[in-house]
């Protein structure tokens, strides 16, 4: 077992997605790939006990069934126990060295508490790191879920990769519309298609998606018309290097006052060093900011996206403008709000 200070923490992938959106189908396909054999899977059942569990045959031996329903509210301790249990087994040599852990959430779960568990537990934080959040979106019913359920929007906001499932039984127009809608909610997420749950593991878990992507699409504001119209995304840059300490002051203040409504923040900040700071957060839960050695590409400008609920893009920009004297740079929206 690597020592506590080991730089090689086991990557944790959180798979979320609304009820029936194909999380288990996706996982059972991906986990049947030989490259995933040393990946443990933690599933969580809600309702029919063990049903999904039996579908995940490849991962059977390493599957730890979490009891008590929902991961986020009641079984966080179970998650801790399950993950500590895996470390124990690995240390005793009962299972081969773990390549990673996949946590499947229930369809109604908010992924933030899972991230929080991994970041804050005194033991887990040294052995695991959250690699990415994958969200499955049903291409047939996805739009309906987004209209009706706030959880669905939150899950997409928290995602690093959005996987469109059931594209085989959906027409191209619906898929394109949903793709645009996902981009509207979370411009920083990579969108993949997985007809019949087929997606290459390297595409899903590969390094390609760990790249510290900033916003990839122009700022899109969902406007005030639809059911989930309270969600806004704000993509912006700064006109120069920002003072990281001052930005931390502003952002920690914002999170304290309005953390529940800041669904997601992701981006690269130019702090005047050789590389940028990679900032990634879901609600109150902020990944330890990563001060990169160098920029991932030729574009050396800050780019950051805020996904908020009930906070308009102008409010964020205005507030940053107010703090610009302290932060040392002025915010510049990447594009004015586009309503879809």
């Amino acid at each position: 077992m690597p020592s506590p200070g080991s730089p090689t923490k086991r990557p944790v992938t959180v798979v979320t997605g609304f009820l029936g959106s194909g999380k288990t189908t996706l996982l059972s396909r991906v986990l049947s790939d030989p490259s995933m054999s040393d990946t443990a899977v933690l599933v969580n059942e809600f309702g029919k006990v063990g049903l999904d569990h039996h579908l995940l045959r490849r991962a059977d031996e390493k599957t730890v069934l979490l009891g008590h329903g929902c991961v986020c509210c009641t079984t966080r301790d179970d998650l801790v126990e399950a993950m500590l249990g895996l470390l124990d087994e690995e240390g005793r040599g009962e299972i081969p060295p773990l390549k990673g852990v996949v946590v499947e959430t229930t369809g109604l779960a908010d992924p933030a508490p899972i991230l929080y568990t991994v970041f804050s537990h005194p033991v887990l934080q040294h052995h695991y790191r959250v690699d990415r959040v994958i969200c499955t979106v049903d291409a047939v019913n996805g739009a309906l879920h987004l209209d009706r359920n706030a959880e669905s929007t939150k899950q997409i906001a928290a995602a690093d990769v959005a996987v469109l499932t059931k594209t085989d039984v959906s027409d191209a127009g619906t898929v394109d519309a949903l793709r645009a809608r996902i981009r509207g909610i979370n411009p920083s997420a990579r969108v993949l298609e997985a007809p019949f749950g087929d997606v290459r593991p390297e595409e899903l878990f590969g390094d390609g998606s760990t790249d510290p992507s900033g916003p990839r699409a122009p700022a899109v504001d969902l406007g005030d018309g639809g059911h989930v119209s309270e969600t806004h995304s704000t993509s912006l840059t700064f006109d120069g290097p920002v003072d990281w300490t001052a930005f931390g002051t502003w952002f920690s203040m914002l999170l304290h006052a309005r953390g529940e409504d800041v669904l997601r923040v992701k981006g690269l900040l130019d702090v005047g060093g050789p590389g940028p700071v990679l900032l990634n957060g879901v609600q109150h839960v902020i990944h330890p900011p990563d001060h990169l050695e160098e920029w991932p590409d030729g574009d050396h400008e800050s780019r950051i996206v805020f996904i908020t609920r009930g906070i308009r893009a102008e409010e964020i920009v205005d507030s940053l403008e107010t703090f610009s004297g302290l932060i040392g740079a002025r915010p510049q929206p990447l594009e004015s709000d586009v309503r879809v």
Binding site: G248, T249, W250, S252, M253, L254, H256, A257, R258, I311, E315, I316, D318, S319, E321, T322, F323, G325
Partner: peptide, 27 residues
């Protein structure tokens, strides 16, 4: 800083909101 804003809210009796337009004028 995580604890600071909570303590400041306790002393002040209301949250310190960076989006508050009144804060802009005061700053």
């Amino acid at each position: 800083l995580g604890a600071l804003w909570a303590a400041a809210e306790k002393i002040l009796g209301r949250p310190l909101d960076p989006l508050d337009p009144a804060l802009k004028e005061r700053m």
